[in-house]
Design a protein around this nucleic acid. Sequence first.
DNA 1: CCCAACTGTTTATGGCCTACGCTAATTGGT
DNA 2: ACCAATTAGCGTAGGCCATAAACAGTTGGG
Lengths: 251, 251
Amino acid sequence: MSDLPPGVDVLWGRREPAKRGPRPNLSIDQIVDAAIEIASAEGLGPLSMNRVAEKLGKSAMSLYRYVRTKDELLQLMIDVCAVKNPPPEPDQDAGWRPNLERWAYALVELYRRFPWVLHVPLGPTPPVGPGQLTWLDRGLACFRRTSVPSELRIGVVMLLLVFIRGQVRMAQEINQGAAGVALGYPAYDRMLRLVVDKDRLPDLAQLLDDGIFDDPEEGMSEQELDMEVRFGLTMIFDGIERLVAAHEEEQ
Amino acid sequence: MSDLPPGVDVLWGRREPAKRGPRPNLSIDQIVDAAIEIASAEGLGPLSMNRVAEKLGKSAMSLYRYVRTKDELLQLMIDVCAVKNPPPEPDQDAGWRPNLERWAYALVELYRRFPWVLHVPLGPTPPVGPGQLTWLDRGLACFRRTSVPSELRIGVVMLLLVFIRGQVRMAQEINQGAAGVALGYPAYDRMLRLVVDKDRLPDLAQLLDDGIFDDPEEGMSEQELDMEVRFGLTMIFDGIERLVAAHEEEQ
DNA sequence: CCCAACTGTTTATGGCCTACGCTAATTGGT
DNA sequence: ACCAATTAGCGTAGGCCATAAACAGTTGGG
C-alpha cells in the first residue's frame, strides 16, 4: 500500500512474484532492455509498443501485463539506464571539487551515450527510482567533508543536474536536426546570417561578425561539445567554490 | 530560396502574399494565437489540429494551407510567444549585472506564464525566429560596456538560458504531476522516505533527516520557486562576476 | 478435480496527423 | 468577356498509435 507511483515498486524489487498461473515468458527487464535498445539505436520516435513487442517475438498487448502504460515504460527505461551506468564513487581522500567534477562529467557522458533520455516527456512525478536517486546521492556525497549546510548541498547538485541536462540537450539540438540530419555550427551560422540585421539585433550581429559560429568543421566534434559544457561547468564550479569557502570560514 | 527551415520565413515577414485565388479567411497569426490560447489554458496534450480548427470555426485540414506540419505550428507558437513577451531593454547607464539579472528574471516570468513552452518537443533546428533571437540579443547586449570577449558572452548567455529553462521546468515537475495533480514537496518527501535507506543512499537519507523537503505548505509557493531559481542564479552570477572582473583587469 | 489466478493473444475503438482530391472563389491575360 | 491558372477550404480516407475488453490456454491450491 505504497504511495509510490505505479511501476516504481518494481524498480525497488517490491513486487511479490505471482504464485499462481502460467510462468511468465517475459520479464520487465527484458521489456525495458528491448525498449532501451530501440531508443538507443533509432531514437524515441520509432519506439512503439508494437515495435518493442515485435523485438521480443510477442504481441503488443502482452506488454501491458508488465507495464501499465507506455509512459511508465519510459520512466522505467530512464531509471534502468541510470542503474546500469552508475555514478562514480567519490574518493574519500580527494577534495569535494575533483569528486564533484568527476561526477558531473560522468553525467555528461551518460547523456551523450543515451540521448533519448533527454527527450522523454515529463513523468507524473519527480525522480524516485533507485538509479536516479543513486546519482543524486553520490552528488551529495561529495560534500561530506565540508560544512556546507544541507539546503545548499541539494541546491548545488540540482543546479548541476539541470545545467548538464540542458546543455547537452542544446548541444545535440545544434548538432543535428530532430530527424538526425547533420547540421552543425556552420549551417547555423549560415541561417543566422540570413535573418540577423544590424539594426534590430546589433549584438548578435556583432557576434556573427566575430565569426563565433563560423567553425571550419561540419558538425561539432566531441572536443567542442566538451568545451561548451566545460565552460559552463567551470563557471558554476567557481561559484560553488566561493560558496564552500564562505561556509568553511564561518566555522 | 532561403536555407531557413520552412515556416520561419513567415515569422520574418518574408513570404509574399498570394496574388491569385480566393482571399484567405484565415491567417497564420490567428492560427498561432488560437493554438497558444489552447495550450495556455489546457496544456499541450489537448492541443490537436482539430481542436485549433474547431476554435476558429474551420476544418482541420484548412490549417495545412498555412502550416506544413503540426511540429511547425509548435515552433511558431514558441517564437510568437517570445515576440509578444519581449525581453527588457538594457539600461545603458546601469552595470551589466543588474541588466542581466532583469533579463534573467524576465525569462523566468515568461516560462512561468507559458509553461507549455518547456514541453514542446525538439524542433528540427535551433532557434532562428525573431522572438528567440531578440531574447538572445538583449542578453548579449548586457555586456556592451564590458571587455568580455564574444565567445564568453555567448557562453554566459547560453548558460543562463539553459539553466533557467531547466530549473523552471524542474520546479513545475515537482509542483504538479504531469496530469496537473498537485504534488508539492511534502508528497515528494513522503515518497522518498519510503525508499531511501541509510545504507544505500546515506547522504540523501541525511538530507531527509534534516527535513529539507519537509515543507509545511502543500505545493510550492511562487516565493519558494523564486527562491530555488534565485539560489542558482546567484551562484551563476557570482561566477560571471569573477569572469568579467578577470577580463577587466587584463585590459 | 475444480476453482481462482495468471499469461498472452485477438479484436476493436478512438484518437491523431496528414496525403489526396474536389469545389468554389479570385485574378491575370487575351 | 472569357478562359486558364492559382489558391482557399473541406471531405474523405489511410495509417499509425495506445489501450480497453473479452477470450483461450496454463498453473497451483484446496
